[in-house]
């Protein structure tokens, strides 16, 4: 039991928890849920928070007629209230070999694990249900969706026991995840998305087709972004047998252009799917990056 606590503490740093505890991670679109949580359902009900008026139609519950309005206007209006509900969140974490690269303190995989843990904590803390899966070219492990802080332990345990062996096939694995989700979910995808952009789009299409809301969290190493190498280098592929000797400064500009183009396309795709895209660099402290991301989400919501 003590060992499990240590593992949880490894992924959920108290400082990080303190910093993000006051923040929220909300789905942008309203999603129906079983429990009363911080997420707002599109279903109108008997909750306390007024939503809007509409004209009375036959069959409406006469208890919901706003008599004060009738007194002023002599017309019947039904009073509608928003129903606060929980969200069915599902976090999918890439454990392909490419996630093992890291030029800083952590590999992309480790960074992604911290990120997934923090988000799980945040969602569970909002009384949302959180499901979790590890994937490479297939779904490797799944933690069924549940609410309550007790869910954090199986999620972290799954990450801790992850075996990194394969390369990704995002198109295939995202369709598998889409099939796994029985209800509309708030799907958080944490990956480097190192695959052909058409494949990525195809996979995302599966998820969006099931009315899920997507949050695309692109985890990249800073070296993968700026390609800041000086010496003559032999690059050996993590996911394939690719080997190439090159002078990095000579191709840096072209490389950075390729990366930027890829991220731009990924952003465009996510925008088209009304999803959110956020880039995390492993060189950036997670607290800072996550806080920045959450605040940005909140500000978007206010707008």
């Amino acid at each position: 039991m003590a060992g499990q606590q240590d593992v949880i503490r490894k992924y959920l740093n108290p400082e990080l928890i303190n910093k993000i505890a006051q923040l929220e991670l909300n789905a942008k679109r309203i999603i129906e849920g079983y429990l009363s949580g911080s997420q707002k359902s599109h279903l109108k009900g008997f909750s306390v928070e007024f939503a809007s008026h509409r004209e009375y139609t036959q069959g409406d519950d006469i208890r919901r007629i706003d008599w004060k309005v009738f007194g002023r206007t002599d017309k019947l209006y039904i009073k509608e209230y928003e129903l606060e509900t929980n969200v069915n969140a599902f976090i999918a974490l890439d454990i392909s070999k490419s996630m093992m690269y890291g030029s800083a303190e952590y590999t992309k995989f480790e960074y992604a694990c911290f990120l997934a843990s923090a988000l799980s904590y945040l969602l569970l803390n909002q009384h949302d249900s959180v499901g979790f899966a590890l994937f490479d070219k297939d779904i490797r492990k799944v933690v069924p969706s549940l609410t309550g802080q007790g869910q954090i332990a199986p999620i972290i345990g799954t990450m801790e026991g992850a075996e990194i062996e394969e390369k990704t096939d995002l198109s295939s694995v995202f369709s598998q995840i889409a099939g796994l989700l029985k209800r509309k979910s708030f799907v958080v995808l944490i990956s480097d998305f190192f695959e052909d952009i058409d494949h990525v789009k195809k996979g995302l299409d599966y998820l969006v087709g099931k009315k899920n809301e997507l949050l695309i969290l692109n985890v990249m190493d800073q070296r993968e972004l700026d390609f800041n190498f000086r010496d003559l280098t032999m690059f050996e592929g993590l996911e394939d047998n690719y080997k190439r000797l090159c002078d990095p400064p000579s191709i840096r500009r072209a490389y950075v252009e390729c990366v930027n183009e890829f991220m731009k396309e990924l952003k465009t795709i996510s925008f088209a799917m009304r999803s959110d895209y956020w880039l995390f660099s492993t060189h950036q402290p997670l607290e800072t990056a996550l806080t920045e991301f959450l605040i940005s989400r909140l500000e978007q919501r206010k707008r």
Partner: peptide
């Protein structure tokens, strides 16, 4: 001689590398 002295890196973003090399 210069080409015989290099460092090795296991690299994830080979797609970008391939494209950049092809381009340049």
């Amino acid at each position: 001689l210069h080409r015989s002295r290099f460092i090795k890196i296991r690299w994830a973003a080979t797609n970008f590398l391939k494209k950049a090399i092809k381009k340049t």
